[in-house]
């Protein structure tokens, strides 16, 4: 017996119809594309690689605008227990051990490394690198083993030690937190996906410091790419070979 194309297609249609078992129950769902869905990857612009540049010469020792903005934006609470408080970004004071250079104050946050050791060690792949280089924690998968905290050389991660109630003025665009998972800076992924800079960068600009620049280093025209070409910058612990994407100028 031979089958022409039409009868094969007809058979396929019949099978597809049969797969609709009951109203609302289908084994195979027809794809639906909403109007605001992202376009096919092939049509989208070349991949971004987000990075940050911090000009420490513009960073004032007593200014905590970035830290405060981060806490506000990401609903990060302070427990009043310094050993167990969560810090996504913190101000660190540097003092030259040789006492030749003046002290420096700068913010330290997750470096969103290209070779992130935290992603390497995570048993459930809850820590992962997004295609645009942002290192994130999928808290749905985190089991709270803390191996990533051990592996991170920048102390960028915190475990949520306390159970908290959401404060009254939460930013609903960002989830609050359950105890027992690890969390860290997300580069304000909800903002950068909307084309806005991270909250700390915006706050730094708002405080008229402008010490923090955020942008796409795969775009040679971006401000950060230009600055990285001309300014003398360094990353934290370059000897570890993790290729961090938070660059510091003026240390």
């Amino acid at each position: 017996m031979t089958m022409d194309r039409r009868s094969v297609l007809g058979l396929g249609g019949a099978i597809a119809a049969g797969l609709a078992l009951a109203p609302g129950m289908h084994l195979v769902a027809a794809p639906q594309t909403p109007s605001d869905a992202p376009k096919d990857p092939a049509e989208s612009p070349p991949a971004k690689r987000w990075a940050m540049l911090i000009d420490t010469t513009k960073c004032a020792a007593n200014c905590t605008a970035c830290v405060d903005a981060c806490r506000q934006e990401n609903n990060v609470p302070l427990f009043g227990d310094p050993e167990r408080d969560i810090y996504w970004i913190r101000k660190v004071e540097l003092r030259d051990k040789g006492l030749r250079k003046p002290p420096v104050s700068l913010p330290v946050l997750c470096n969103h490394c290209e070779n992130p050791p935290c992603v390497h060690v995570c048993p459930t792949a809850a820590s992962f690198s997004r295609k645009d280089g942002v290192v994130l924690i999928d808290k749905h998968r985190c089991i709270g083993c803390r191996y990533c905290i051990i592996a991170c050389p920048y102390k960028a991660r915190s475990l949520v030690y306390y159970k908290t109630k959401p404060p009254a003025n939460t930013n609903k665009a960002v989830p609050i937190r359950a105890a027992g998972v690890v969390e860290k800076c997300t580069f304000c992924v909800h903002r950068i996906d909307n084309g806005e800079p991270p909250a700390c960068v915006a706050a730094c600009k708002g405080a008229e410091k402008g010490a923090m620049i955020f942008g796409d280093i795969n775009d040679p025209q971006s401000e950060i790419s230009q600055r990285l070409l001309t300014a003398k910058t360094q990353t934290m612990r370059p000897d570890l070979g993790l290729k961090p994407q938070v660059h510091y100028q003026g240390i």
Binding site: D36, D138, V189, D193
Partner: peptide
């Protein structure tokens, strides 16, 4: 949608949890 949003950054506002 959660996997797509969190891990691949494909956020479709009209289909989000919010």
């Amino acid at each position: 949608k959660r996997e797509e949003t969190v891990r691949e950054g494909k956020f479709v506002k009209s289909e989000s949890f919010l």
